[in-house]
Amino acid sequence: MLSRVANSIYWMNRYIERVENYARFVSVNINLSYDLPGMISEHWGLLLEATHDKATYDKLYSEETEDKIIYFITFDPNNPNSIFNILGNARENARTVKETLPKEIWEHLNSFYLSFKQFSTTRKLDFEEL
């Protein structure tokens, strides 16, 4: 039992770290695009290579645009490495051991996931207009 709990907590932590790293990648690229308009737009494709998601992206989308790449990395349910899916994996690991976690950790992670899920639904509608 201890091994299962330790494993779930370990992976919950790893997924949360990945969410943070992916969010930082996107944030840095967005800030660079504000500072260097036009020049950085070509570099969004490099973000796909850095996250090793280029092959998955190419299967789903025909062209590399800033908006599509941001959506793919953050909200796309078809991308197993999107922030949305990684956050869901962290939540699932926390759910399986929530009786051993402090109540606040479960509540914050769960509410963050649910808020992100609700926002991703509205973002998906915006993306479909592109």
Rank of each mutant, 00 (worst) to 15 (best):
E92L: 05
H108I: 10
L125I: 15
L114H: 12
N81G: 04
L101W: 04
T122I: 13
T100Y: 10
I83Y: 06
E107W: 06
D67Y: 11
D126P: 11
D126L: 13
S82K: 02
V97S: 06
L60A: 14
Q118A: 15
K68T: 15
S111M: 06
W106V: 04
T121K: 09
E66I: 13
I73D: 02
Y113V: 02
D126C: 11
A90P: 07
Y61I: 03
K124Y: 13
S62Y: 06
N93E: 12
F84R: 15
T121E: 12
P102Q: 06
T65M: 00
F112L: 14
A94N: 07
T100K: 08
Y61D: 08
T100L: 04
W106E: 00
L109E: 03
L60N: 15
D76W: 10
Y71W: 10
E128Q: 10
F84A: 11
I105G: 08
Y113E: 02
N110Y: 07
I86S: 00
F112Q: 00
T65C: 01
F116A: 01
K124P: 13
I105Q: 05
L101T: 07
L101H: 05
S82E: 05
Q118I: 09
I70N: 07
F119P: 00
T121A: 10
N85V: 02
I73G: 01
L60E: 14
A90N: 05
N89G: 06
F112C: 06
L101D: 02
I69L: 03
T96C: 10
S115T: 12
E99A: 12
E129S: 11
I86F: 03
